Amino acid sequence: MTQTLLLLERLAALIQQLVREDAASHGLLPVHLQVLSFLAQANRYSDMPIAVADYLRITRGTVSQTLSLLERRGLIRKEADPRHGKWIHLSLTAAGEAVLTTSWMHRLEQALAASSADTQAFRDDLAGVLSCLQALNDHRAFGQCRQCAHFLKEDAAYRCGLTGDVLASEQTARICREWIGEKPPAAIPGGSE
């Protein structure tokens, strides 16, 4: 095992431990905390049960049970989509947001800020590794709306090129299940490969 792989393995194990500890401190399981974390970042195309299943790579049955528990505990709310009758949107309640305020993510952000690493280069490197792993394992990518190939800026407004929907500014900073990376450059006619 290379030093880089060892460091990534240790970091993953530590994050898992922090998630377990945070979840237990609230009487939750790690999957419950992962769902809350996802919903805190999800845009309107991703705040649905199917997107939770896709993002966490868990069964729809597990998602259904998890969402029911989180709703009973007052940590999330379910709302019907006004345009699509069968769609259910999920959002955090104030209590759900409170669970995340002191979570492992904030401690990790503090550690990153305290390190001397070039955060932009580190983020780019991690994004590259993540992208490769997702492609190798045929996983849906999920990414920030405004960094998607479908994202369109028109005058002072934003639009999804896939759905044609107008996007609120705050939605463009959230993650989306329909995200795709930049489109590859077109091949040059007559060029060599």
Rank of each mutant, 00 (worst) to 15 (best):
T66S: 13
D22Y: 08
L56P: 05
S64K: 06
L70M: 07
V35G: 06
A113N: 04
P30L: 05
Y45E: 10
L6G: 00
S91F: 13
A94R: 05
L67P: 12
S91E: 14
T93E: 08
G85Y: 09
Q110E: 04
G61Q: 15
F38P: 03
T4N: 00
V31P: 08
R83N: 12
H32G: 06
S103A: 04
A98N: 14
R57P: 05
Y45M: 07
F38S: 02
I76Y: 10
L29N: 02
I58R: 11
R10Y: 01
A98S: 14
L92R: 15
L108Y: 01
L33C: 01
I58Q: 11
L56V: 08
Q17M: 05
L7G: 07
S37Q: 09
L36I: 08
D47H: 10
L92N: 14
T66P: 12
L5I: 07
L18P: 07
D81Y: 10
L36N: 08
M1L: 07
Q16M: 10
R20L: 14
A80N: 08
H106S: 02
S91T: 11
L33P: 02
Q3E: 01
S64T: 10
A51R: 02
S64E: 08
H84D: 14
S46R: 01
K78F: 14
E9F: 03
L8I: 00
A111S: 00
R107Y: 03
Q65S: 14
A40D: 11
L112I: 12
L33K: 03
L70S: 11
M105E: 07
L14I: 04
Q41W: 05
A24V: 01
S46Q: 01
R73M: 09
L39D: 03
V31F: 05
A51W: 01
V52M: 09
R73P: 03
S46T: 08
R107D: 02
S25H: 09
R10H: 08
L7S: 07
P49M: 07
V52Q: 12
V99L: 06
L33E: 05
I88T: 15
R72K: 09
A23K: 08
W104R: 03
L5S: 09
H84P: 04
Q16K: 07
D47K: 09
S37M: 06
H26F: 14
D81L: 09
G27V: 06
L33F: 04
A53Y: 03
R57C: 10
L14Y: 10
L8N: 03
P49F: 08
